[in-house]
Design a protein around this nucleic acid. Sequence first.
DNA 1: TTGTACGCGTTATCAG
DNA 2: CTGATAACGCGTACAA
Lengths: 364, 364
Amino acid sequence: METFTIKDIARELNISTSTVSRALRGSYEINPETKRLVMECAERLNYRPNPIALSLKGSGTRAIGVIVPQIANYFFSQAINGIEAIAYNRGYHVIIFQSHESYEREVANVEQAMSRRVDGLLLSLSSETSDVTYLRELHDKGVPIVLFDRVSSELEVTKVVADNFKGAFAATEHLIQSGRRRIAHLTIQPWLSITQERLAGYRAALEKYGLTYDENLVRYGTFGPNEVGPMVDELMALPVAPDAFFTASDRLAVGCLTALRQRNLTIPDDVSLIGFTNLNVAELLSPSLSTVVQPAQEIGQVAAERLIDLIERKHRAQPVGTVRIATELIARDSTRLPEHIMARLATASPEDQKSKPRDFVLSI
Amino acid sequence: METFTIKDIARELNISTSTVSRALRGSYEINPETKRLVMECAERLNYRPNPIALSLKGSGTRAIGVIVPQIANYFFSQAINGIEAIAYNRGYHVIIFQSHESYEREVANVEQAMSRRVDGLLLSLSSETSDVTYLRELHDKGVPIVLFDRVSSELEVTKVVADNFKGAFAATEHLIQSGRRRIAHLTIQPWLSITQERLAGYRAALEKYGLTYDENLVRYGTFGPNEVGPMVDELMALPVAPDAFFTASDRLAVGCLTALRQRNLTIPDDVSLIGFTNLNVAELLSPSLSTVVQPAQEIGQVAAERLIDLIERKHRAQPVGTVRIATELIARDSTRLPEHIMARLATASPEDQKSKPRDFVLSI
DNA sequence: TTGTACGCGTTATCAG
DNA sequence: CTGATAACGCGTACAA
């Protein structure tokens, strides 16, 4: 089980390393007999070329770097699953990095990935990232890059995303069709592409039904543990309060529900709610909460396909477009949460909420 | 933003590469002035040593290979999160592999990881794996290996696991204290360490309360989509039917609930249930299902710490022990699932169950 | 058809 | 204190 090199084979057969090298990679200009001998010997010694030496020679590492904000987030872990599956099939390895939603760390990660000479980069931007010049430089230098989910409009690279516009449109339309007229939208950082696309879908649906867009009904933020409550208070204190909420993530959906319940606002008598979510579990978690489900795994697969195509120059003139993977609206009849869940949400102390991480309902 | 080498610095300063190398790594025998110049130049050129060249020299790759059955499983993604955090802090990279519960693929992954010359291996065995000689050989050759969660008793390496014994003991005890006397145990592959430990905890609790262990009440298996039902039928058809179920995973817990509901068995009047789970979400999913929660992230952290210590020979005579991270029993008053969830579980057609993957409730 | 020599980026060894 | 040289494993011009 030692680790043999091309040199060992050469010595064994009393030939030169170059002959071995050529035989191994099936060069034409080689004696069939020698070739056979080399192959046999390589087999016997269980020879494996040293990928590091290959990398040093500049023949690529057959590894791709994947940078995501968080791994322990169902959306991203599903996406990584898809990525790894494709990469494996095509003979690539996946090196994982987490930016932890930090711009600085994202840059550091990219640098690390490059210094490891990955053949390409697959990344989903941190929510802190607004300046993408460091990526543009890399891209201009010819490094294959594909963005997924959290993409930037300022980068002309291949992007793979959920169809956020259609998803948001469907969600909003569903609320309108169920009789709502003042639909609030709680969403995340405004500079994120996904935020913008969802907002556009929301507006388009309003427009379609002749409802006016009211910017007072839209709130952006990171919404830490106890920030959703005040936001809901503000909204409910408006001259004409909202009668529905469309939230941009699982976390926001739960936060919103908690807040509404704590304020004794019944659902759906007063308000209706839709969450934009990754989790199938949401289906069981809150069977009366309508959700827009994102095709995380497929996004990962498609992104990986594109990146590897790019690396292997399958399509020299590959169009630098944005691939949109369809989302699915799961509409429920009622938007009322079951009592026991509402009770739990309401009684959980702030302490509790801190000590029991809710990352599983974090998304986007 | 080019990529400069030690050679560039040497040329720039009209000195030799060796001097540069030495200056960079702060060798004593070097002119402070030269050193300063080199440092300054390196800084200016944004010099970064090429890790690949370093690897080729045999100084290690500062990368660790992580092999898990599935990434898109909340337990493992949390564990990987912990691993990555520690690795990052200590200057290591994480290369991820999925075995997809296949022995063959696991072996292939290990081989790939080794050929990439990772400095160490962190792995959680596939459920198919029973023969670990390939790992023993590696370990005997001095490759640092740490197993976590899914470990093998036939390997004398450092292991990091949840305290399955205590967890199972607490779960069983809770059921006994709530008046149950015939506690069935649905669990996974018998050769897995976690299975054995949980079974031991289960037996110990029975013993403590003077209940006899009945092997007819214990069922092992992989429990595919529609296999739990028949199993429950068998159990309920016993001369003395069980009055409680203790399941070894989220998936089993859900399957068991579905089966019970479909058979119109009420809970807790007839039976009581505890799931051994990773998911905090289980708390919300089924607020009256008691659960034993596993400290996934901490397991990952500790495992990574140990592995890196091993790699860096921090503790030359590091005891090759098993670290057990505490589990937590979250006991509920009632073991009855809310109606709406029971209804959903019961009405979901087999088609439905297939098309909507339940990986989020897969564990262990 | 096969062998020799060189280079990829770095460090260790040995001379100076 | 500093420089030249070899070596890590491999591929490939160039030479034979």
